[in-house]
């Protein structure tokens, strides 16, 4: 290493060995996705015969998409809509509530504040499993099992989101500014909506994105609280198709024709989130930096 280098991050010699080693890791990350894409361009005959990482005979992607969308009177679109509803309302609500709660914990002194912060930290460590069965039983008592509410309500609670926003709000919103707003006669609620929320935006987007992933990919909770396919999200629906494909659902008749449905359906299910992450990179990377580093 040369010693007399100018200050600031200087461009350094790229290492080929390192790039190749990391290239292998990138390949590992992307290979299954490439396989998924290639497979969704195939008809069921070439799906099982050809090489997995290349196109088969003919390009059947659009035929497959058509099949996925039209099967069972377009139940896939219904599942897609459900997932979208759960993700947008659930994640949006979770991000908003986390922001408000984190801001409150960071910026106001009130009795039980320390205890409440400890509860939030503790809640992160509680496995969702321990809550699943009682949640189901509570919901069935209230009579909201098998309705969208049963999926939406638990998604609104995000201890990790509250924790992240508390850390973020402590840094991003200066106390002196809140003081100034108070002196100018602005109410606390108005200050929150007009001033603080703007400063909290990067943290908000981060929590929103991660809550979006959590709800979009949620499987355990909907599996438990829903039984009517009409309300299924994509994850539960796709796995049901898979059971049909492998014949595990009990009918005994293994139908190869379900595989293109499962594979193409899977591809369509991951596109929105991947696109969201690619386009919002700038936001979530800065927000993540704030939350993960400071304790």
């Amino acid at each position: 290493m040369s010693v007399n280098t100018p200050a600031r991050r200087r461009p350094r010699r790229a290492s080929n060995a390192l790039t190749i080693a990391m290239g292998l890791m990138l390949l590992y990350a992307l290979l299954p996705l490439i396989w998924l894409f290639m497979s969704s361009t195939k008809d069921s005959a070439s799906l099982t015969s050809g090489f997995g990482l290349w196109f088969g005979h003919g390009f059947h992607l659009f035929d497959n998409i058509g099949d996925v969308l039209s099967y069972d009177d377009g139940i896939y679109l219904r599942w897609f809509g459900n997932t979208l509803l759960y993700a947008v309302v659930g994640a949006g609500g979770a991000a908003f509530l986390s922001t408000a709660a984190g801001y409150g914990l960071a910026k106001y002194r009130f009795r039980g504040r320390t205890a409440l912060s400890a509860v939030v930290l503790g809640a992160i460590a509680i496995p969702g499993t321990a809550l699943a069965v009682p949640t189901y039983l509570l919901f069935s008592k209230v009579g909201i099992v098998d309705t969208p509410w049963a999926v939406l309500l638990p998604s609104l609670v995000s201890p990790f989101g509250v924790y992240l926003m508390r850390v973020y709000a402590a840094e991003a919103v200066p106390d002196s500014m809140l003081e100034a707003a108070r002196i100018d006669g602005s109410g606390e609620v108005r200050t929150f909506f007009t001033i603080s929320l703007r400063l909290l935006a990067p943290g908000f987007v981060t929590v929103l994105l991660f809550a979006l992933v959590a709800t979009w990919n949620n499987y355990f909770l909907p599996l438990i609280v829903l039984s009517n396919p009409k309300w299924f999200p994509l994850t539960v629906g796709l796995n049901q198709w898979n059971s049909l494909a492998t014949g595990a659902a009990g009918s005994g008749a293994t139908t190869t024709n379900f595989y293109p449905l499962v594979i193409t359906g899977s591809l369509l299910a991951i596109v929105p989130l991947v696109v969201a992450f690619l386009f919002l990179q700038r936001f979530w990377q800065s927000g993540l930096a704030a939350g993960s580093v400071k304790e």
């Binding site: 539960v236 796709l238 991951i270 690619l278």
Partner: peptide, 21 residues
């Protein structure tokens, strides 16, 4: 970004994919 992308894939889809592979 490339190594991170699998995080956006639902566990159900990931398991199905790898299971088929």
């Amino acid at each position: 970004i490339g190594i991170f992308v699998p995080y956006a894939v639902p566990a159900v889809v990931a398991s199905l994919m790898w299971g088929y592979l």
